[in-house]
Simulated assay, not measured.
Amino acid sequence: MWKSLKYQPENLPETIEMTREYYGDSWISDLQFLKWQYEDNPAGSAMIRLARDVESGQLAGQYVVIPMAFKAFNELIHGTLSLNTLTRQIYGGQGIFTGLAKAVYQDCAEEGSRFCYGFPNPNSYPGFLKKLGFTDLGRVPLLLRPLNTKALVKKKLGPVLAQLSWPFHQFYKVRNHSDARYVVYPLSDSDLSGIDAFWAKVQNKYPIIGVRDTNYLRWRYFDIPLRDYQVYGVRRQNSSELLGYIVGRCTEVADMSSGMIVDFLVDSEHPAAGRCLVNSLLRFFVENNMDLAGSLMLAHTEESRILKNNGFLTCPKSLEPQPFPVIYRKLGVTKDNNRVGENASDPFLQLNQWFLTMGDYDVI
């Protein structure tokens, strides 16, 4: 038998112990990472419910969301991102997942959060839809671009075929496509002065978009423990006005050295500035010996078109390491258990209304 209780900061050590038992030693069970994720978020502290065994006193599971600020249809609203969900194996089948989740949603609704969204893995995906009433909005396409075709072919098919890939290697070679009208430069946590003005200009570019102001970008990409990101801004020659930014990270994906484009947003009046950002980041990846570049980007966005113009291709679903579904649940329940406003005409249920990148969740 278990009971639900609201998380307090003093519960963090025992949640880490439970998380390590479930996930092993990784960023998701690291003290500093979780303090950053749960306590330092400029949108607010994490909303967490814990399940405790009433007899043994040990934790049996957790359900976690973190607040995320959004600009949606010209209104500043708060949603929540679902992450780090787990139930200890010996407590499976006791309704912990659904019980804690519904309690968290009630807590969030009382705090004014309008919705919950997530990018579930294949194991948790069915539970969110069948047990918690989430809607699958669709998949975010994975875009890929070879950086070192010979290395990729050698790893997957062997050295003989790698020699035959030389024409493709030349075709996908990253070249310097600088534009004399624009200057691309590294952004640092000590100099984000142009971000708020840029955000004020582009915040209505898409109907639903996560807030990308100075406080958010500093927290998400500069204050984060255990990860290093490369962040570039772009401006016109002889001007200090920021026209866009791009965020990249060098990592390993499926045993391949991969440069991931984590976030990318550009002023719609300057698509050529966006092309300069992509080219600069690709050259950074090559300098750091990445063999493949990747990005999650919705097809209807201008940023997706810019990536495709820079050699990115949509990965076939059969070759994806896993699907990337977006799930959504409106918070607030009516007496007949239907969430207010959640129907086929709800614009939040249309994925083509959203702007989402890897930066809108926590895996990369």
Rank of each mutant, 00 (worst) to 15 (best):
F171E: 14
Y172C: 02
K173I: 09
K173R: 12
K173S: 10
V174K: 03
R175I: 03
R175Y: 01
N176K: 15
N176P: 11
H177D: 12
H177T: 13
S178C: 10
S178V: 10
S178L: 12
D179C: 08
D179P: 00
D179Y: 04
A180S: 14
R181V: 01
V184N: 02
Y185P: 02
P186M: 05
L187H: 04
D189R: 10
D189N: 11
L192Q: 03
L192M: 04
L192I: 01
L192E: 02
L192Y: 04
L192C: 00
S193E: 13
G194H: 08
G194T: 04
I195A: 03
D196N: 11
D196C: 03
D196V: 07
A197G: 13
F198T: 01
F198V: 01
W199V: 02
K201R: 15
K201N: 15
K201I: 13
V202Q: 06
N204A: 15
K205F: 00
K205E: 14
Y206A: 05
P207A: 12
I208A: 09
I208N: 07
I208Q: 10
I209H: 14
G210L: 14
G210F: 11
G210K: 10
V211D: 14
V211R: 14
R212P: 09
D213N: 07
T214H: 07
T214V: 09
N215W: 01
Y216W: 14
Y216E: 08
Y216R: 08
L217G: 05
L217N: 07
L217S: 06
R218A: 01
Y221T: 02
D223G: 11
D223R: 11
D223Y: 01
I224W: 01
P225L: 08
P225Q: 10
P225D: 12
P225S: 09
L226M: 12
L226C: 08
L226E: 13
L226K: 14
L226D: 12
R227E: 14
R227T: 08
D228M: 06
D228A: 03
Y229P: 14
Y229W: 09
Q230S: 10
V231I: 12
V231W: 00
V231K: 02
